[in-house]
Nucleic acid binder design. Structure first.
Lengths: 347, 347
DNA sequence: GGCACAGGTGTTTACGCAAACATCATTCGG
DNA sequence: CCGAATGATGTTTGCGTAAACACCTGTGCC
């Protein structure tokens, strides 16, 4: 391993990848010409290009991204920070961002954040900030606080499904519209009012859904019931559902996501209250399972793929210096009516 | 990318990050000393180290991973290739691998693969192979064909939830045990035989579950019904469920995952066949919603976190040259009995 | 007091690539 | 037919880091 010659080769791990110099030697050109071919520059003779490409193939050459990043200052990578990917919406958004990024020639540097604490988000940022990404997408970032994250102003950031009040570019569903359509649907069926099983208090998406629920009820002159909070999980929906099931005046519930709606319906069923005959339930997300719940769930469909594409587009705008594009984008959700909602029983 | 236009778009961005040299200048030491501090070497005087750390903090210094990777040949990154992250199991595994990797100081380079074709997997590999990762984890990789993937032998690879027959290290659930326990549970309840709603034909995990179902039935001397295939989705479970519901002899179904079981139960319900009184149903995965299905699903729980940790461990063994560790690991699943299974009605 | 030795630090070099610049051969307008 | 513009290629340089090596100082030992 360690040879003791005059100017010895280094005792590094043996070179397993050919470099531009190797390709250049085989093709009988300079390494710069190899670089030009590698980067698809136009000013290379067709015959020369062929020679180089052949040599690349022979040696199995692949450009070294580290060296390229070092010299260009660009990494071809987008960082994605997300909370629990076990949550349906987060996973879908991640997948959509990844797809869109790949189409744009970027890879995804993923950081999962377990705890919803600011320190955890901070740490994730710090990791990604080691200059190894060109920009960052933050999914479900209710803890985001602009002032405490020491981001260099030059680091492009897009927030998906988060607070629209901060300084970063933002892509989100039109939560207000989604909540409004669900609540209006229920009121239109003849319910006197609509209860609300909300998401966690520190989620902006959840808060916006709650606000829209409130204003819709107020506009309709319906009484405003107390808000009950879950944590997005089916289990929390079940717990809250047990409380709601105990109140006979509850005939309609607008739930902030599908998973909680599932738990809610389970609790109602166990308490002997039928959905939709006794209680109507709506969800939010339209996860792929929602159509097969018992009963099939009326819910608000979100187009996660579109969100992913928008995120990447806004991020690339920043990365490539096109800051004239829109900084905030909203994706319109659509109400999907299924079997979990009906007119209240005449009682 | 014909960027024939102006020669300007490639102008190098202004230096926005301080380098070692900047820190060294401020601290009044050589850049090599900064390097030593940065890498936590011991042979640095305590006072000097303090000076350097202070300078780093003042300048907001962060080591440049590209430069470090260039010189060390290591990237501190693990590539993860996964199919649809909308599928519960894949998302959970991804999250677990990401967590385990972060604990080990590695970041995750994620590549989603839309189409389950060999070409798509190939392309994902090629992307990751641009030397930007130290190893690769492949999730749900039924299409994996060792001979056609041109991996350098030195690229560490671990396959999760895939074929145990190939040359790569492997972490998987003990599918046979899981299927066996579910089928045995159903037979033990008094069912004459157990039908099987299987996963896609090209999934090794699905095939192993099917095989184990078959051998368990044979060992019990139970008749062997025809196998019906879904594609993991609730929708496919619903379609197959309509067929099964039409056969009165079906009293118990072992389903290859929870989502299909949901669709199946929906179809049974619509056909007027009650679960579990008329038909018992088991799932596989124990997704967090399964306990709130109607009825709550008896299923086989998989510990995805453990799989993720094992994957990272096996991968690090290879990356760091410790190839003496185990190359294959199995994680034991556990049967969770809930309300979707019961003894057949005396008919 | 000399001498080996170790710990602390600085100097040089190379990693692989692409930008900037240099060189040479063409082509074309007048 | 000359001089300038254009195109194809080679040469030099530097990105930020860590390894290898050189060089100091002080210490302990005889």
């Amino acid at each position: 391993m360690t040879e003791k010659k005059a100017r010895t080769p280094r005792s590094r791990p043996a070179r397993q990848w050919p470099s531009m110099a190797d390709v250049a030697a085989l093709a009988g050109v300079s390494s710069q010409t190899v670089s030009r071919v590698s980067n698809n520059r136009t000013n290379v003779d067709a015959a020369t290009r062929e020679k180089v490409l052949a040599a690349m193939k022979t040696l199995g050459y692949r450009p070294n991204t580290a060296a390229r990043a070092l010299v260009t200052g660009r990494f071809g990578a987008i960082g994605v920070i997300s909370f629990d990917v076990g949550a349906h919406g987060n996973a879908r958004t991640l997948g959509a961002v990844a797809d869109a990024a790949r189409e744009a020639g970027f890879s995804i540097n993923f950081m999962g954040v377990r705890a919803q604490t600011e320190a955890a988000v901070q740490e994730a940022f710090q990791h990604l900030m080691l200059q190894s990404v060109d920009g960052i997408v933050l999914i479900e970032s209710q803890m985001l606080d602009t002032t405490s994250l020491h981001l260099p102003p030059s680091m492009p950031v897009v927030v998906a499904d988060g607070d629209a009040g901060h300084a970063y570019a933002n892509v989100d569903f039109d939560q207000a519209l989604g909540a409004h359509s669900a609540v209006t649907h229920l009121l239109g069926l003849g319910h006197r009012t609509v209860w609300h099983l909300a998401g966690p208090r520190d989620s902006f998406a959840a808060r916006r859904r709650t606000e829209s629920w409130r204003t819709t009820l107020e506009a309709a002159g319906a009484p405003l019931p107390e808000v009950l909070h879950g944590d997005w999980s089916a289990e929390s929906g079940y717990r809250v559902g047990q409380e709601l099931a105990a109140r006979p005046e509850v005939t309609a519930v607008f739930t902030a996501n599908d998973q909680m709606a599932l738990g809610l319906m389970r609790a109602l069923h166990e308490a002997g209250r039928r959905v939709p005959q006794d209680v109507s339930v709506t969800g939010f997300d339209d996860m792929s399972e929602a159509a097969f719940f018992q009963p099939p769930l009326t819910t608000v469909r979100q187009d996660f793929d579109l969100v992913g594409r928008h995120c990447v587009r806004l991020l690339l705008d920043q990365i490539e210096g096109r800051s004239d594009g829109p900084r905030r984008m909203a994706v319109e959700p659509a109400l999907v009516v299924r079997g979990s909602t009906a007119s209240p029983a005449r009682g």
